[in-house]
Amino acid sequence: MTAADQAPLRAEHLTLAYGERVIQRDLDFTVNRGDIFIVMGGSGCGKSTLLRHLIGLQRPAAGRVFYGAADYWAADPADRAAILRRIGVLYQGGALFSSMTLAENVAVPLETCTPLPPRDIRALAELKLALVGLAGFGDYYPSEISGGMRKRAGLARALALDPEILFFDEPSAGLDPVSAKRLDDLMLRLRDALGATLVVVTHELASLLSIGTNSVFLDAATLTQIATGAPRDLLADCPDPTVQAFLRRGELPPPPKTKETRP
């Protein structure tokens, strides 16, 4: 098996815990190349915690996270840093460094991870800002722009090193429906153009049903995953009442299709 046909991200019997308190246990899922992989579930079920475990901010209590063939938590620090350079993360509020301009924010990973001269870095930063629709905003400080723009600037920074996997934490939180839709479109176009894989933590129904190609559903009651698959397919055929309630905003699912016996 070569690296090309290996799934870019895979979780194996992952157990997430804060100290003694188990958040989720036995998570098993595979994110394939080009997927828009949705991590969904009700509030407080551990979606963001799972994200923190996937992007190397928190060590799992048990289980493994594979990036390609590499076991992230078993790798030595240099390999881990190399893995992290291949991913990009968009945090909920953008998480821009407030003392730097947008262009400087985007340039930070470029300056530390590439040998490029300042002129090229500046050009790359401008390109990334243009990609997210913020051309000409390079000299603005995060405090001078709106929340939606901050989020897009955060995306430009996440894109800086041309990542293979992009993680989004609640991308549409705090955005109006039109901006949220535009961000979805942007994510789709970037995925198609860059050939990247997207992992999205969200509970925004409209968004996850329209863009998701695969998903994992975390349940707060049983503390484990209760469904995987494309969100639209889950909506159509998942028998689990929790998943159905979630995907239909609590409205009752249609009566189950009774298997008709042909006369």
Binding site: L131, G133, A135
Partner: peptide
């Protein structure tokens, strides 16, 4: 995509 939004002058 990069040229979809015209640059904004400071």
């Amino acid at each position: 995509l990069a040229s979809a939004v015209p640059p904004r002058a400071r």
